[in-house]
């Protein structure tokens, strides 16, 4: 249930950006959520429905781009997509890999109406 905390943080950031650009309403918010971020997109969507009430983003559309988990092998150099609980090299099977994508929990873009 920490998706609600995440949403509240998101809306504070959105309010700050809206104020900076003198926006009167926010139309669309785009997020990138990696498989290892610890956040579930469907839960985030539901939490957003609750958290946005009474904010400038009340009628905003939330777009969540769920990213893959990608590892780079330190042993053989292979790179590829893997399941979240099996971060093994897709080439040689070694566990000494670096996660190069999949941890993101990012606010990418805000579309807003300015006067």
């Amino acid at each position: 249930m920490h998706e609600l905390s995440v949403c509240q943080g998101l809306l504070r950031e959105v309010a700050r950006m809206a104020a900076e650009h003198d926006a009167v309403a926010v139309d669309r918010i785009v997020l990138q959520v990696g498989g290892l971020s610890g956040v579930e997109p469907p839960l985030l969507e539901r939490a957003f429905e609750v958290a946005r009430a009474g904010t400038l983003a009340e009628a905003a559309e939330l777009e969540i781009r769920a990213g893959p988990v990608v590892v780079l092998c330190r042993e053989c150099g292979s790179r590829g997509e893997v399941p979240v609980n099996r971060l093994l090299c897709p080439g040689c099977g070694d566990w000494r890999v670096e996660v190069v994508e999949g941890e993101e929990l990012l606010l990418l873009t805000i579309d807003m109406e300015t006067v």
Binding site: V6, G9, L10, R12, E13, M17, H21, A23, D27, L31, V39, L105, L106, L107, L108, T109, I110, D111, M112, E113, T114
Partner: peptide, 15 residues
Amino acid sequence: GKASVEVLASLLHEN
């Protein structure tokens, strides 16, 4: 004609 801002901030930025 809407304004679109690229933010690229962590959702847990404040934390």
